[in-house]
Amino acid sequence: MKRVYVNEKWCLGCHLCEYNCAFANSDETDMARALKDIKIHPNIQVEENNGIYFAVSCRHCDEPLCVKGCITGALTINDGVITIDKNKCIGCYTCILSCPFGAVAPSEEGVVQKCELCMKTHDGIPKCVQGCPNAAIVFEER
């Protein structure tokens, strides 16, 4: 299955992936309008320290602790993609307790949000990867 992989040495720390993610998950068609004056809560987040940068998003694990531990059944695996049913989730954050990558986060509504490889919103290549200027994140089979 294709996943988002990180080429750490190429990451510039530009955070464009975060903006593209936030835009892709908004209901807006215009990027400027989608992101203007808001604090974004992207599903991919750049970690940075001492000149090292890399972007972290859901690994879509084969044995996902978040899904196994989900107390409601809101997190499921669909064709390998780990998705969240926000209507079922009650925001207990057991998945945040479980994810070894820190890739699940509370959303503004209280339930959790996570990367779904743009499956619900777009087809094909996730927007974070499409917008990465330096191939520091790629969408491939490895």
Binding site: N7, I52, F54, F101
Partner: peptide, 24 residues
């Protein structure tokens, strides 16, 4: 020290991250 302040993958070595994030 870093991970105490800020939980993240930064606290691990690059090789570990290549496994965790690079699918190696």
């Amino acid at each position: 020290t870093l991970i105490c302040e800020n939980p993240g993958l930064m606290a691990f070595g690059r090789e570990v991250r290549e496994e965790k994030l690079g699918g190696l």
